[in-house]
Amino acid sequence: MKLKPEISDKEMITVNGVSKTYLGGKFTAVDNVSLDIIEGEIVAFVGPSGCGKTTVMRMVAGLETPTTGDILVNGHEVQGPGPDRGMIFQAYTSFPWLTSRQNVEYGMKILGIPAAERRERGQKLLEEVHLGPAADKYPSELSGGMKQRVAIARTLAQNPEVLLMDEPFGALDAQVRWEMQEMMVQIMDVEKKTVILVTHDIQEAIYLADRIVFYTRTPGRIKHDVYLDFKKGQRFTSKEDLLSQSGYLEVEKQMFAWMREEIQLQAT
């Protein structure tokens, strides 16, 4: 099935000439990155390992402050982390002392949402991520993919404007990753978020994203910023549908060529 993403023309995330240095300025991780992300877009950050993708995302999340430049989310300058920007980490962050349901309700509790409403929205989200039967289990009783779904539902429960996902499926095996990717497409059709997805999996980026921002190796700069025009503004609920689109292979080849350029630069 093909889905039409709802993309407005409102700027949701603006990254203005952002750089980030570590070690007292001796090491530049991110160098002068500028980006505008439109409300409803799914943007993938792709690039070689250690190029600064996570750093840019963490600065949008407010977990890291830019050394220079600034970041606006929905018109407000990012000053620190906040529930308007939900983040999903590669490491499992579902709280082990809470059941799936309690985890999903936790974020809403922080926001002061009344118990009855928490319960109702929590149940809806648990079902959206196919965790209905595991609602009252602890994370230690769940598989990696299920733990990650708990984290996704917990983040969505806060109804953030922006969803930041840092290699969310990186620790999962190929089959589970594929299931999660297809699930994400369906969820995004319901929840309609502006998404940044950090990944080094080129296929994942092409499948999930409307647009790909490709970074150079350290120091991270934007190498290419491309819309996936071959998708004709659609998202696909099955990966086979994507693969049968004409133009898919060209894009994938292009991404691999860019990746090779960056990796070979590193070797010399």
């Binding site: 999340a61 407010g62 977990l63 620190g80 982390p81 906040g82 529930p83 920007r85 939900g86 983040m87 980490f89 490491a91 962050t93 709280f95 936790y106 974020g107 922080i110 926001l111 984290a151 917990r154 983040t155 806060q158 930041l164």
Partner: peptide, 13 residues
């Protein structure tokens, strides 16, 4: 794990 703290921070705790 730092990630647990950061996850809570991004939730506005």
């Amino acid at each position: 794990a730092t990630e647990l703290v950061e996850a809570a921070q991004t939730m506005g705790a």
